[in-house]
Design a protein around this nucleic acid. Structure first.
Lengths: 189, 189, 189, 189
DNA sequence: CATGAATGAGAGTTCATTCAT
DNA sequence: GATGAATGAACTCTCATTCAT
């Protein structure tokens, strides 16, 4: 594939991403993408055979670009800051959830039992648990069951995301929930 | 509307519900429903003009039929049992989530900013908070911020539901999460 | 299916037949038929799902309408006349072969190894052999191997048909070939 | 045209021939040929502008390569052997008819009234008649109307070919038919 | 009320053909 | 000469929606 092709493919994926964010997965047609990219009907088929293929590529590029905040702590003293940064990033994502691929992912993965989403969730839980372990070891966090705490945090975040998606979640609500999650870890004196 | 019409409408709604459970919201066409109901194409239009109208009626009938476990406690001593029953019902629903309208609801409400789902969530939070208050007053539960506790429980449940929908959640995982939620309320000695 | 539907279906089949005669089988699209029948795109699909289905129905109706000249002899004295009538009908068909379904059949059956054509050929051979037997028994025909004679006649006719289809066969050529075939059966004195 | 061009053209024609054998004429697209030849889309157009042009070149090369068995007899004593060899070659071709260009030719010439096929048929008839004349003169064959006999043989062969193409013809059937044809020429004692 | 035939818009897909490189 | 990306026309098929009966 030539350099130009690579760029074209990138253009398609980037354009398609915006459409997936706006319309979810199922409602997006090849025609939508063709028109948004301003290429010809047949042109798109040179790169992708269907919307699923494009969507998976969008996810792949997104995953590639994502930085794993959770894995960035290298000593116990950083654990708290890293956790706070993670929470802040989550909050930000929840607040702008309609500008993310959340709907599309939900639509896609609720009917394509792929393990992709599950894997990512599990990985996040694991990294979070490791972070908590680090903090507990350094006596930054209270001595909790790190696995259970990590899972609890992730489920609450997932719940917030879903509610934000289907209704309204105020910034205050998110702050309050995150506060509660953090307090569960903090050493009470 | 004649009695016959009412029955016909009920038939349509009941049949459509099964289809929405199986296919979600977006993928269901008027044709699907016509064929499943074994009525005429034009016939369906006498009762509903599109799938959205049918879906909302499905939701209405479901809401009507739902019993509100959370509101059933009338004295403090029952609070614990009612909460346990609620948790058990939630667990059951999560385990059979693919046989519920969860996917369809998610699909529908993520692109139709109706307040229906939000209202129900808020109502559940409120009832749960009242239940907790009742339990706290009767010293069945530890003295917690009932509103915050209720919200936390609901978000965890929502998160479990979403993860169950897009991946796999084992019965053990659910049990563990529910246990943690319950323990947060129990009086430690 | 209502009476009107039956008529519509007949209209489609009759119209399609003309198109198959003109364009063969492979080159005919659903669009061609839709346009020729002056019905809507979707309308055609109410009756047939693809050109193959229509073509087979055309063949069925043609077979139904066909009269079996060969089986019409009931005594030896008629054998010669029936054979002559058959030959005349064959000649007529060969001369107007471009106005028959011959091309379409050839195209269709050369890639769909259905036994339909084979069956018809075998049936013709059988009836022809019976006719010859009848004539031989009544001493109208020379004592020949009726099966071999029938096959030979049918292969020559098939050959004439094919040559007529792909090139030019004059009426004289056909007459000469048919004459030779008849002479092979006639009692020489 | 450079040597390289000639080779390329040969590659295209040879590859295309295989495709025409497999798919007939109408179903073959420029894309099929491009892919099979492993050349570029535009590259093919440098040599041929459509499938018809390629097909005609395939036929030309085939005709060039074909050896004319019928013209190989130079004295009467060889007439019988040459005829037998011709019959054997015909039988072989009929048995492997699906591995020949027969379908493609039929498809092509039934809608492109080229005289190519007709010419070849006429030439075969002529050579066959000359061969028979030679045999008759040398008293190897019975004194028949050589033109009529040659035509009859060719039509039977054409009929066998067509039936073999659209149905099934057993080796025995071919042998029997060829036997009958030969016997018509042999001097009965 | 109920039917189901009919319509027509629109999505998917394939391919001949062109053209800048 | 050669490439292969790009175009756009043509075709298939599906469905929401209407309407005569």
């Amino acid at each position: 594939m030539s350099e130009k092709s690579v760029l074209k493919k990138k253009l398609i994926v980037d354009t398609a991403k915006k459409i997936f964010i706006r319309k979810g997965f199922k409602a997006v047609s090849m025609k939508d993408i063709v028109e948004a990219c301003d290429i010809s009907r047949g042109g798109l088929y040179l790169y992708f055979s269907d919307t699923e293929e494009i969507f998976l590529e969008v996810l792949r590029q997104e995953a590639e670009a994502a930085e794993d905040i959770l894995s960035s702590a290298d000593d116990a003293s950083a654990a708290f800051d890293v956790l706070a940064a993670f929470m802040k990033a989550q909050k930000k994502e929840i607040l702008r959830i309609r500008k993310t691929l959340a709907v599309a992912k939900l639509e896609y993965f609720s009917s394509h039992k792929g393990s992709l989403l599950q894997q990512q969730f599990d990985a996040d839980v694991m990294h979070l648990a490791q972070l908590i372990d680090l903090g507990v070891a350094g006596e930054v966090f209270a001595p909790v069951d790190s696995q259970a705490a990590a899972e609890n945090i992730m489920y609450v975040l997932e719940g917030l995301r879903t509610i934000a998606l289907t209704g309204r979640v105020s910034e205050e609500t998110i702050d309050k929930e995150l506060m509660i999650l953090m307090q569960g870890l903090i050493i009470e004196e």
